[in-house]
């Protein structure tokens, strides 16, 4: 079983977590053109690599960020969101 480390609850089985995709900065909806907005809504960085991702520990509803290699499935670190970086 795969173990993920929640910054609040420590190591827990991955089945307790929910994955919410890559962390992506949202463009300002009032300033973005239609194309920029569509790009934000639909397009994804689908290629493998080390990505910052949103994860949630569902029993405690703890949202946090995991840095994960999406080809090797290795989690490099997990931490709380610190605001836009």
């Amino acid at each position: 079983m795969k173990i993920l480390t929640c910054p609040l609850n420590g190591p827990r089985p991955v089945s307790e977590f929910f994955y919410w995709g890559e962390v992506r900065p949202m463009p300002n909806p009032n300033l973005a053109s239609d194309d920029e907005w569509a790009d934000y809504v639909f397009n994804r960085n689908g290629a493998p690599g080390v990505k910052k991702e949103w994860w949630c520990h569902t029993p405690s509803n703890t949202w946090f960020i995991a840095e994960r290699d999406t080809e090797k499935d290795v989690v490099l670190k997990t931490y709380f969101y610190q605001g836009e970086e």
Partner: peptide
Amino acid sequence: STPRILKMVDVKTPIYI
């Protein structure tokens, strides 16, 4: 492997794996 090839031609799509 589509996203890997798309990266080579610099085309963006919603495809995820």
